[in-house]
Amino acid sequence: MAEPTSFTSDAIRSFAALGDSFTEGVGDPGRDGHFVGWADRLAVLLDDRVPEHSFRYANLAVRGKLLDQIVADQVPRARELAPDLVTFCAGGNDIIRPGTDPDDVAERFERAVADLSSAVGTVMVTTGFDTRDVPVLKRLRGKIATYNGHVRAVADRYGCPVLDLWSLKTVQDRRAWDGDRLHLSPEGHTRVALRAAQVLGLEVPADPDQPWPPEPPRGTLDLRRDDIHWAREYLVPWIGRRLRGESSGDHIEAKRPDLLPIQDTE
């Protein structure tokens, strides 16, 4: 078992983000056709602490990827880059698939964390969200909670800071989510970035736990119309891709495969 890692945010001069659509930033569109997302926003907060713009950032995440694909495609590149910080969010797409065993996924997750920890400065791991109010995924809440317990245990064994999304209650508001109800909205990504910065010991410009402003009540008919629209626009195509064995990440490349100054993300 690895010794706990000690770190300060001042020591972080380079950062690589690994994962799937969540870390790629799906739901948070940018000006250049790429997604922004919480990891890009965290990189900006880290860059603000480094003089002379010497901070460098890579984002290797690709939507739709399963844990083994992330391990095969992204972990070796992260080891090669050897940044001061890696964020590793993986396994979520495995957990939501029928028949997967969270214990088995967690064993493979731990092997990847061990591999990363031997080559990079600090590995920050991420739990899954609390899905109790998410259509379709709320039935998987217990499975996600089991996997989260494993992620926390792995973090303890390898001295990894934990970005705990289950406890971030403000992202349970519907306004934190994109229209597909599977990915965060820009505001949701912003709140996650702020929480990640807090985990790393940074002072943040806003509180990710700040309550949302009151929202006008919505009638049952409006909610039902939203559900029908969501099912047609997002749920049916998602099921179709699963039946065809396709992924939203097929033929998609990492948006930022090299460690570069943060200005190159703007």
Rank of each mutant, 00 (worst) to 15 (best):
G19R: 05
K143W: 09
P205H: 12
W212N: 08
D84G: 07
R256N: 03
T131R: 00
P76Y: 14
G64M: 13
R218W: 06
R218N: 08
M124E: 01
Y158S: 08
R232I: 11
E246K: 12
L18Q: 07
S118Y: 11
E3Y: 14
V36P: 07
L66Q: 10
R195K: 12
D222P: 07
L81V: 12
R49C: 11
I262G: 01
Q198R: 14
K169V: 13
L85I: 13
V36A: 14
G245E: 07
S247M: 06
I252H: 14
S21V: 02
D104A: 13
R41T: 03
V171R: 00
R157F: 02
H251K: 09
R41V: 05
R244I: 15
W166Q: 04
R56E: 13
L42G: 05
P237N: 08
A206F: 06
P214C: 09
R111Y: 07
K138E: 07
F88R: 01
V44K: 10
F22L: 15
W166S: 01
D207A: 12
I12N: 04
V62H: 02
G179M: 06
V105M: 06
V75R: 00
S247K: 06
K255M: 15
M1H: 13
G91T: 05
A155K: 00
L140Y: 02
G201H: 03
A11L: 02
A39S: 11
R174I: 15
P237V: 14
R175S: 14
A231V: 13
G159L: 04
R56S: 07
G99S: 12
D180P: 00
R97T: 15
L194T: 09
A155C: 10
A106T: 06
G92K: 00
I96D: 07
R241Y: 14
V50W: 00
G30C: 09
S9R: 09
D222V: 15
D47W: 02
A176D: 04
A114C: 04
A197L: 13
R132Q: 11
A196T: 00
A206I: 09
P216Q: 10
E203H: 14
G25W: 09
Y234A: 10
K169Y: 13
G249W: 08
Q69R: 14
R111H: 12
V162G: 05
D209P: 02
L221N: 04
E246S: 15
D209T: 06
R111C: 00
R108Q: 12
R225C: 13
V123L: 04
I12E: 03
M124N: 01
T131E: 00
I144P: 01
H251T: 06
R31L: 11
N59D: 03
R79F: 02
R241H: 14
M124V: 01
G142I: 01
E80C: 13
H53M: 01
L42Y: 07
K138T: 05
D164R: 00
L200T: 03
D250N: 08
V151G: 00
D130E: 08
Q69F: 05
P208I: 01
W177E: 03
C89D: 14
K65E: 12
D32N: 12
Q210N: 09
R139A: 14
E24G: 04
D226Y: 11
L46A: 10
V113M: 08
P237T: 11
G37D: 06
R191M: 07
F129V: 06
N148P: 12
R97H: 15
